[in-house]
Computed example of a mutant assay.
Amino acid sequence: MNRHTRVDHAAAAATLRGVPGTWLPIGEYRNNLTARSIATVIRTASGPSGSPYQPSGSCEARLVPTEDGTVVEARYGGRRTMRQSTDTERVLGQIERGEVRAGRDAAREIAARAEAAYGAVWPADHARAEALAAVKGGGA
Rank of each mutant, 00 (worst) to 15 (best):
M1T: 10
N2I: 14
R3N: 11
H4W: 05
A10F: 15
A10G: 14
A11T: 14
A12I: 05
A12F: 03
A12G: 04
A14G: 10
T15C: 12
V19D: 06
V19L: 11
L24T: 09
L24M: 12
P25F: 05
I26G: 01
E28M: 07
Y29R: 04
N32A: 15
N32L: 09
T34L: 09
T34I: 12
A35F: 03
A35R: 02
A35Q: 02
R36I: 00
A39W: 02
T40F: 01
V41Q: 01
I42G: 00
A45L: 06
P48G: 03
S49L: 13
G50Q: 03
P52R: 02
P52I: 02
P52T: 01
Y53W: 09
Q54K: 14
P55N: 07
P55D: 03
P55A: 08
G57K: 03
S58A: 15
C59G: 08
R62M: 14
L63M: 13
P65L: 06
P65V: 08
T66D: 09
E67T: 12
E67N: 13
V72L: 04
A74G: 07
R75T: 07
R75P: 02
R75H: 05
Y76R: 04
G77W: 03
G77V: 13
G77K: 12
G78W: 11
G78D: 05
R80P: 00
T81S: 08
Q84F: 10
T86H: 04
T88P: 00
E89D: 15
E89R: 07
E89C: 03
E89V: 06
G93W: 03
G93K: 07
G93R: 10
Q94L: 14
Q94D: 09
I95M: 05
R97D: 12
A102T: 15
R104N: 00
D105G: 11
A112R: 11
R113I: 00
R113V: 01
A116H: 12
A116K: 15
A117F: 00
Y118S: 08
W122M: 03
P123L: 01
A124Y: 07
R128I: 00
R128F: 09
A129L: 11
A129V: 12
A131Y: 10
A131G: 01
L132S: 00
L132N: 02
A133Y: 03
G139S: 10
A140Q: 06
A140C: 00
A140G: 10
